[in-house]
Structure formats: structure tokens, C-alpha cells
Design a protein around this nucleic acid. Structure first.
Lengths: 216, 216
DNA sequence: CCGAATCCTGTCCGATACTG
DNA sequence: CAGTATCGGACAGGATTCGG
């Protein structure tokens, strides 16, 4: 009675879809990519997910060895969900699929997105060629948390937690940051606060390429 | 009434899941990765898919601009389904997700897999470091079709269609080829016929690394 | 409050039968 | 050969309730 639905396919990719192919599963993984989150954090940053579905996905991902429950460290108390090393390794597929997705000819830009989604999109849109010779560090403070974005030696690094020694610090919401970095908007026009070297934000924007839709 | 279910998420990745996140959708894309296939070809190489589901997926993928209907060329007649340029660009996400999937600690090797799945897995398992200095071309003849696998200058190329000038030609089924390339099996032990330079197959096997499971 | 478990309803999936 | 029609069952979505 308890048989899980499976493709029964020897292809590793298909077997992965048995684990992460259910609705919402990969978005849960996405939200966990920058560290442990509580059930209610996930519920909040995944608008539209039902509590029972979130429960089932977390249980399934835990059973698959992609997610594990952890005791929340310092300030907060209680349990939370975090990725296992294998789950964390999904960051690369997420980046590559995001890069493919950004070439969607009908991509919609008007919907809100979570801070984790915005920070991961940086990896998908990063263009190492454009970043040649660039060195810049920007801290980003969102309602959901803080992130540090660093470009150095043609490589991009995006990690949770700011450290205060960046060239600039932006405060606001993630949609505003993407409007500045990808859309060339002025920070003040989108309600983004900038401290420090405001020009650093412009240099950072130069590291990202516009997606090239592949029309039929 | 006809609203398609959507995550309503600004994240490009989530929007891609709106298009290819339904059950079977990505496996259909996988099967089309080496050229146009008819409805009945897809039905046969995707054991377990229902005809109505295949219909719905093809229609959805066509509407999304990932698949297009084509008139079948020369020998055969009738219509078939092929990837658009954007759909073809999914080969890279497929490769990277396959590489991630191959590190599944519970990966099952005993299920059969389609020729397309087997040929795509080569890309996921290829190790450019191990292929340094290697130059080999092998034609593979499967019941489902012929493929040419070439390693040269540290790069792997897998394309549909053999051309007869390879170092070796193998004839049999795709599971047998993978058993030889990944599992070190002897061709004669798995029912694989080899013509030409049999040692070329051994050299080719050296270009693929065993997956490293990431245990928790 | 957090983290679920439990309804109930609607949609989607899977299997088979059937038609142009 | 290439799908459409149909129907039971599984799964998702939403609200409510319940235990730490």
C-alpha cells in the first residue's frame, strides 16, 4: 500500500526525479540553499504551499537523504531543516537550470521572489567574461536575512551573512536589487538604500549579462 | 477555468518548473535530445507513461516553446516531435542534474534505461581530467538507433548517427555498454558485440569516473 | 507561536478502451 | 499510427484543529 510512485527507470536523472520531481520539492531545496530554515520560514517564503504538502516534502526529502533536521543554533531555539552535503551539491544544477530558465522567451519579471531565489539567480546570470579584472564586495540586507556577494578573479561568491567590510551595503528588498543589477535601475528609484561606495554597485552590475532568449 | 497551475514565483527556475515540472515532462525532453521522435517512439521508450499523459505533456511543451512538431524527413513519413533551440539547450541542465543524480547513495543500477538516457549519462560521467591526451571514436548500434561517441582534446561528443570510420563499433543494448564503460565488465560477458579495435573500448572507459556518493 | 495532523474538495495521474 | 475518451484512485490545496 505504501509504494511510492516511481518511474522505474535506470537513468540516474529519472531516479533523481523520483526524489525531487514532486511539486514544490525543488523550491524547498532552493530555500534551504543558504542555510537551515524552520518550517514556518519555509511556509512564508514559499507563498502558496500548503502545510501538509510542506510536511510531506520535507519528510520525503529527508528520507531521500537530501534534507536533514538540525537543532537550531544560537539565538533561536527549536528544530529546523537543513541540506545534507548531497543536497547542498544541488546548487550547481540549480544554477545551470536557472541559466537555462532565464532564456525563457516568456519570462515574467513582475512576480516577487524570495531572497534565496534572488541570490541564486546571481549565479545563473553571472558572466565570467564580463567580470574579468573586477573585484568588488557588496553586503545585502533583506527582510529575510543578510548575504554577501563577492566578485574576485573572475569568480562569483554568494554566501549567507554579511561581514561589514564590503565596498557597499544595500538595504531593501531583493526585487529592488535585481532591478538595479539586471535592469539598470537607479537604487533610489526602486527604494534601495546604499551605504558606502555606491559606484561599487554599478561595477557589480557589470558582471551580469542579460539573458539571451532562444526563439524557435 | 483554464488556468494552468503556477507557482507565481518571479524566480526563473520556478517559472521553468511551471513548464517542465510536471510528471514525465523532463523525461520526454530527454528522449528528444538526439533528434525527432514519433508519438509511438516516445511511448515505447518511456515505459509506463499513459497515452493521454504523453499527449498532454507534448501539448504543454509545445505551448511552452520547448517542443515543436515536425514533418518526418526522408524514409519515414508522418509527423514527429522535436526540440526547439531552447529545448535543445536543456542538454546542459540535463547533464549537470545527471551528474548530481549519479551521486545518489541509493542509486539503482538494475533497471533498464533508454538509449537516449544511456548516451546522455556519458556526458554526466565524463571526467575531462581522465580524458587528457585521449583520442578515441566509437560507434554504438542499439535497437533504438545509432550513436557516435568521440573523445578528443579533453572533450566528449555524443551525437546521433554512426559514420563508419570509428576505431570500434559496438552492437548490443545500452545497458551492456554502460556495464562495460562504468562497471569494467567484459563485452562478451554482457552480450556486446565489438568490431574493430576492441582496445578502443577500454581506452574510452578510462574517460569516465565513478560517481562519488555524498553521504550525510 | 511553532510544527505539524486531519479533514475535505478539486485536480492530476494511470490504465484501458476506443476512434480518425 | 496517433492520438482522444473515460473513469477510479492518488495527490495537491486550503482551512481547521491539535500538541509542544
Amino acid at each position: 500500500m505504501e509504494r511510492k510512485r516511481s518511474y522505474d527507470d535506470g537513468c540516474a536523472f529519472a531516479q533523481a526525479l523520483d526524489l525531487v520531481g514532486e511539486r514544490w520539492a525543488l523550491l524547498v531545496v532552493r530555500e534551504l540553499m543558504f542555510g537551515a530554515r524552520r518550517f514556518s520560514d519555509l511556509k512564508r517564503t514559499l507563498p502558496g504551499i500548503a502545510t501538509n504538502v510542506l510536511s510531506q516534502r520535507l519528510a520525503g526529502l529527508e528520507d531521500a537523504g537530501i534534507v536533514q533536521q538540525v537543532d537550531l543554533p544560537r539565538p533561536a531555539r527549536g528544530r529546523a531543516y537543513a541540506l545534507t552535503p548531497w543536497g547542498l551539491a544541488f546548487r550547481e544544477p540549480l544554477r545551470v537550470m536557472g541559466a537555462w530558465a532565464s532564456r525563457n522567451p516568456r519570462l515574467a519579471f513582475d512576480h516577487p521572489l524570495s531572497a534565496a531565489a534572488a541570490m541564486l539567480s546571481l549565479g545563473s546570470m553571472f558572466d565570467a567574461g564580463k567580470a574579468r579584472g573586477l573585484a568588488v564586495a557588496v553586503d545585502m540586507r533583506f527582510p529575510e536575512g543578510e548575504f554577501r556577494v563577492v566578485v574576485r578573479e573572475g569568480e562569483l561568491s554568494v554566501e549567507a551573512g554579511a561581514c561589514g567590510t564590503a565596498d557597499a551595503t544595500v538595504t531593501g528588498d531583493q526585487n529592488a536589487v535585481l532591478a538595479v543589477l539586471y535592469g539598470g535601475a537607479a537604487p533610489e528609484d526602486v527604494g534601495l538604500g546604499v551605504e558606502g561606495d555606491e559606484a561599487a554597485l554599478g561595477r557589480l552590475a557589470g558582471a551580469f549579462g542579460a539573458p539571451v532568449p532562444l526563439v524557435r
